[in-house]
Design a protein around this nucleic acid. Structure first.
Lengths: 153, 153
DNA sequence: TAATATTAATAGTCAAAGAAAGTCAAACAG
DNA sequence: CTGTTTGACTTTCTTTGACTATTAATATTA
């Protein structure tokens, strides 16, 4: 008996293939119903099979009319970025190396100077300099840092 | 199933755009009738989508001939972002609030959709979901996450 | 007529119910 | 032991409705 998670994974991928799209919106409960499983099973599938590392990006919203949007990253469009994400960067990277990458892809015209600045802001030491981080505290620093780029000349 | 609140929000914004004005007066009950909903639904839409944070200001009057006046504030980019950074955000911010701010400044044209996506990527839960973080590990996640935006449709 | 009271027409508030999705840990299977 | 499945509990967002508050118009009274 093939694992349920695998079946759901295949199902989602087939939906995308059949609809010939890189973006799919599902209702968690509906899908869970379809497979007769706990809704949280869907979360499990998404968080193990549809990660950035595996080439997917997820956005969702709760409440009435909520949804889960699954986006497939298009590695054809910018192969170099795909290479960076899936092969080059790995599980850990120094600030210096990150900065080099950003400079490089800006020079290649893949990102604008402003976008580079945003990413520098997010990844520099100042933003990430927290020890035991209440997540929101980190996030606030990150966001402020990124926003400040917009008003710096 | 698109949310009623979203539909009403769009309706109001289109009214303003079409009339090419920054000031619009509506009758609460009339609008509620038009959408076949509870009048207080209109209040809900106004108080979640037309806040000062989002650049709108509301004035209203009850009684016969009452009305709700919706004014779009002319927020100068720099002061507004400065306000966000130095006053509004504070020391801690939830992912949700961060997301709202980003949606807002995109709508105002302060950042591009792509820049918004970059910042969302940097500030969402998945990126920051680390407890005792070797800084580089966090950074790698962040960077990958941000880069992935570039190859998302 | 001028002042005052009443009524009808609005809008506001708040809390409960409903509709999703998220989290986490325990149980389970290979 | 690792990865999967489940379910109880939480959080977020929306919708509705009963009740309240305010204002303009109208009727009444001094």
């Amino acid at each position: 008996m093939s694992r349920l998670s695998d079946i759901i994974e295949r199902f989602i991928k087939e939906l995308m293939r059949d609809a010939n799209t890189d973006m799919l919106e599902i209702q968690r409960n509906e899908l869970a119903d379809h497979f007769n499983c706990a809704p949280s099973q869907i979360n499990y599938v998404l968080s193990t099979r549809f990660t950035v590392d595996k080439g997917y990006y997820i956005v969702s919203r709760r409440g009435g009319g909520g949804f889960i949007r699954i986006m497939k990253l298009d590695t054809e469009t910018i192969p170099f970025v795909g290479y960076l994400i899936f092969e080059h960067i790995g599980d850990s990277i120094s600030q210096l190396d990150a900065s080099r990458i950003l400079a490089n892809i800006e020079e290649k015209g893949i990102i604008t100077p402003r976008e580079r600045a945003i990413m520098e802001a997010a990844t520099n030491g100042r933003s990430l300099n927290v020890f035991s981080p209440p997540k929101d505290v980190v996030r606030a620093k990150l966001l402020k840092s990124m926003l400040s780029v917009l008003i710096t000349d």
